[in-house]
Design a binder for these strands. Structure first.
Lengths: 168, 168
DNA sequence: CTTAATTTTCAGAAATTACTGAAACTATAT
DNA sequence: ATATAGTTTCAGTAATTTCTGAAAATTAAG
């Protein structure tokens, strides 16, 4: 039927536009994170809106980038446990998918950064031998804040674990 | 008394070392944030371990940096509401101190970043017209995560407000 | 083992970032 | 009003980042 063929194509195109917009927008957001080039965000975006594993060659085609850039971005996502490799039986290709725990892993990694700030303040407080000055008051406030943030981040990890339980 | 004079001086030196270490360490931590040069962290560090307002000239001396770099870092800290200007009566100098709500302001700013991620996922979901695919499942998980984080960050703002009430 | 598809690594180029030092600007004390 | 201490801006430079494209390495099928 002609009607059908005419109708489906534009729909598909619109969906592709939405996905491409998402990929580029995520690229910009991720670029706002240190040591996260835009390409990392774009590859992450591709994995998020893909309906199955993607090879690096497919990512290169979708993003019109070099294989080198895709490989580097892929490594970053694997290192950060945002992406996962999956084998494709009967093929020497390696598929990439979004890690099932990508966001939980992101949260987990964030905790160590927050701890660095908390520990730095605490360590300096100890060096200053608890004298009572504006400086030590500042450091105590700094430490209290980052300890509080860490606590909340741990609660988010628990939230993930409860979610997972509910799914099963 | 000689004993006193001999004893106090090394103590002071040790304290200064501790402060300088703090300043440099915070420089490195802050350098880990996009669009935050190390100098911003160092100036922030100076303000945190200072026992009173500092002028830009004093910051330059402590950090052995150029006035230009100090001025730019100062502007960044003022824009982000990490630092506050205080007038010094009878002087044309402007003092800089750590903002009393520095960490609360940091948290507040962080929320808009998290919202960007949540909104991007939601917007793309709407564009994809709630089809039921792996892609939309990914986007729903992404949105749920960032909404959850936003909620926790708002709780931290409340925690700050409660703290402030207790202080008074 | 050989071959071919795929991935990684790396040199070089382009773009960006962050500093210095000097000149321009601002504001206050006299 | 003037002089001067203090601050900002900006051109130039050094360092860093991120990409491309090609060569090297890896891996699995035949």
């Amino acid at each position: 039927m002609q009607d059908n063929a005419v109708k489906v194509s534009p729909d598909d195109a619109r969906i592709d536009d939405a996905r491409m917009e998402f990929i580029e927008a995520l690229g910009f957001l991720v670029e706002g994170i240190r040591w996260m080039p835009r390409m990392v965000g774009r590859v992450l975006g591709c994995l998020l809106v893909a309906d199955g594993p993607l090879t690096q060659a497919e990512l290169r085609d979708q993003l019109d980038a070099s294989l080198g850039a895709v490989s580097t971005a892929t490594r970053t996502l694997l290192d950060k446990r945002f992406a996962l490799r999956v084998g494709i039986p009967g093929s020497r290709q390696t598929g990439l998918i979004i890690h099932p725990d990508a966001w939980r892993n992101m949260e987990e990694d964030g905790i160590s950064g927050v701890q660095s700030y908390a520990n730095l303040a605490l360590h300096t407080l100890q060096e200053l031998e608890d004298e009572d000055s504006p400086a030590t008051a500042n450091l105590r406030k700094m430490n209290a804040y980052f300890v509080e943030v860490e606590q909340r981040m741990r609660e988010i990890l628990q939230w993930f674990d409860e979610q997972k339980k509910l799914e099963q």
